[in-house]
Amino acid sequence: MSYAFNWGLPPAAASFAPEIDSGIALIHWAMLIIFVLWGAFFTYLLIRYRHRADVGVSLDDTTHSLKSLVPDVIVMIFEIGLIIFYAIPVWAHIKMKFPGGNEDPVELNVIAQQFAWNVQYPGPDGKFGRRKPELINFYNPIGLDLTDPAAQDDVVLANEIHLPAGAKALIHLSTLDVIHSFGVPEFRLKQDAVPGMEIPVWVKPTQAGTYELACAQLCGFAHSLMTGVVVVQSPDQYQAWLKSRAPAKPQQAAAPGANF
């Protein structure tokens, strides 16, 4: 497979991915330039000041020289620029401002477990059914409470997420057991799922396609097998898919760890 150069990054498929990519590219170009300049100077010093019998040492003013702080100033200015104009605003955009209200995002729960991704869509009523840990069993991996009316039309999937392209999706990320991490390289998205917490994550996929969702935080012996797919479809296809999955009764989702 061949990617365009782009520092080896996989294709970008989310709205904020280009922002992250441009940062990675900018920093790597800067690093490369710094390293080359610096390496050239270093090599020059090694050759110019190698030991020769007839050439002595030339002492500079070592005690009061602040010369070695000069690169610091340059680095500092670069970093301050990065922080103010890049890191803080983009960070807020990705991790702190969540779609809601009039944006009408696609909402879904992603509930990680050893070693599978459970996905819960609220169904046509737009309400998530209640979940209770007591109810979790082989056939009900997320402990959906079927006595709850809101649970009746919920769609529960394992290791498969469907999202419409061009629309924002709000994912409520949680986990049943240990820390997992929701990572989709093409979305440039990564967020740990922490036991006892429900963490919001948003993404706006831009390219239709199938992407790999892989756990990015060590979660046990089968960590590397904890993968799923994210299917990004055109909005029409997505709606069609959603309709086809809307159950009269809740789905029987795949058993835990069924993917290995």
């Binding site: 992250i20 920093i27 690093m31 990065l82 990705i94 998205l189």
Partner: peptide
């Protein structure tokens, strides 16, 4: 190479 890791935004991708 610590720079892109210490920067919140690029760390989202490069983390772990």
């Amino acid at each position: 190479t610590g720079l892109p890791l210490g920067l919140t935004v690029t760390d989202i991708y490069l983390h772990d």
